[in-house]
Design a protein around this nucleic acid. Sequence first.
DNA 1: GAACAAAACCGAAACGTTTCGGTTTTAAAG
DNA 2: CTTTAAAACCGAAACGTTTCGGTTTTGTTC
Lengths: 345, 345
Amino acid sequence: MAATIKDIAKATGLGLATISSYLNGGNVREKNRIRIEQAIEELHFEVNEVARGLKTNRTRSIGILIPELNNIFCAEIITEAEEVLRRQGYAAMICDCRTDAHREKEAIDFLLHRRVDGLLMIPSGETGASVQRFLRAKKPVVLIDRKIRNLDCDCVLVDNKGAVKDAVNRLITAGHREIGIIAGPEEMYTAQERLYGYEQALAKARIPIRDSLMVRGDYTIRGGMKAMRELIQKNTDLSAVLVSNYEMTLGSVIELHELGVQIPEELSLIGFDNVEFARASTPRLSIVTQPTKEIGKKAAELMLLRLQEDTVSGKKQKLRLKTGFVEGNSVRDIKREESLERTKE
Amino acid sequence: MAATIKDIAKATGLGLATISSYLNGGNVREKNRIRIEQAIEELHFEVNEVARGLKTNRTRSIGILIPELNNIFCAEIITEAEEVLRRQGYAAMICDCRTDAHREKEAIDFLLHRRVDGLLMIPSGETGASVQRFLRAKKPVVLIDRKIRNLDCDCVLVDNKGAVKDAVNRLITAGHREIGIIAGPEEMYTAQERLYGYEQALAKARIPIRDSLMVRGDYTIRGGMKAMRELIQKNTDLSAVLVSNYEMTLGSVIELHELGVQIPEELSLIGFDNVEFARASTPRLSIVTQPTKEIGKKAAELMLLRLQEDTVSGKKQKLRLKTGFVEGNSVRDIKREESLERTKE
DNA sequence: GAACAAAACCGAAACGTTTCGGTTTTAAAG
DNA sequence: CTTTAAAACCGAAACGTTTCGGTTTTGTTC
């Protein structure tokens, strides 16, 4: 049905190789250029990327594997990455593995079969082995947000430890001592780093670290609700909580809301990620923000770089991006209240 | 590098066609089956989907074109659709056109070049012409959430009019008369239907329709903020507002929050979509919900159906799914208050 | 206008499958 | 054991490109 390169050759009286050369940016005599363009126009020719892919062994498509599309953090990153990739002619094959290690593995197989040129991935399981197969096939892999043990490839990370340290410091500065954290799953890279940041901040301020103040959630809304309830039950003197991702922040707010706990009068809260949600909350939430757009952009750019230098070997880049902080009214400033109290006397 | 079907043929002593037949589910003698499977195992053979695609003229991939990945409504639909498609072996090539008609057109071209087998799309511009090219190529198109004028293809819609009518009725039943609406862009199909539902509900209750009570936003957070401000300025007697999508609901809440308007004491609000957000708001928001999972699932299933019957002709299906309503505390029940008042006397 | 280098052009072969039409093998029936 | 229908098997050709090595054309210089 659709016209092929052969049709264009026939129509113009030129050779196959010439048309191909033209299509790939080669030089062609002016009059031939005109003839070719005319024929393409008339016959509605469009190069068949599939055939091209077979011949060149490059599909110009990138596999994107993420734990959850329906997650604002992932979605923002992917949006940006997809745009950067497509602008360079690369298609994004997106697979959502629902934070399930088994599905993640399946998806990697799937993408390998489809012969994508590279893999952009926010890991959720410990799938080092599967990912290795990409590297063995000399196809670049860029990891986002999380490293995978024993896997040497480019990655774009965030300064999780620093971010949490900074947030906890703000709580300490405001006079809080009984600071809880809703951390993520134990095996999760970001969760480990964030918890570590929490411990470091407390240690530096010489505040004893209590197990009862550290509760783990599973990065879901429901998990956040449960963790917050647990934290409150276990610690009658709880004065502030840091919640270490967006979904759990949402869950925490819902739970506090349902328990009738006032923010920040009865409990101070610092959340994570979603600026708009923070702004729409009552009171406005103070949150740690991650540079999602930049993460996506950098990851895609790293991928493109590897793709064009087409050497998967060489020193791998480990980017570490800075987080931000958006101030709200969800943290009670005990220090200030005390000093006001004192001046009053 | 990677093993091909030829290598398997050589290793097993069987013919090319036999291997191909085996790979495609054909019958093979038991002993040969074993030999083939062994050879596949040993040589790490994986069928090359690109070559297969060239030969069969089917890439087993579906283009998914949406206005904004980073939008919970879209993301939920796509998550579901992608899962259904992939389970049947179809890859999803996702393109985000940022609600931009020009980019949307580009993306359609892009997907056509990639020879996707079909197009799943939440339209944002009036790109009938571009989409036609898919149909001309005998490739199925399934529209989601919006129709496109003069384009006859399957679509999965939502009962927008009914949803808004129902929501407005609830406001009326609660005793509200000065009901505003923050509607979507004029050219938007869903926006038209929703506005129409609003008008019908008012008309039926014999409440005069006032222009000042109908404000349009652009379906963004910022647009919602602006629209809410306008609505309040224009209508001093405003008693309730219906906001017709999630982003604008978020914007409205932010704006009310910043203006210090109390919900529902000073203003009643009904929002759209995001259940979790509604639950986390203070007070809990009453919202209209859309069956996003079902939309995604149905759309993907419709696509698969068309794909396997491989006749794009025939009667097109127009599915119309029911919306839901989640009750919160953001609507003041004036009627009830009045009757309480009366019994008190 | 002859000589020459550079630029443009050319067709065949190859990429890894599926499919067509035909041949061989199997096993059931006589 | 022979016949026969069905099942299994087979290789060549084709899908639409790119690329290799080689040929022709162009235009500059003498």
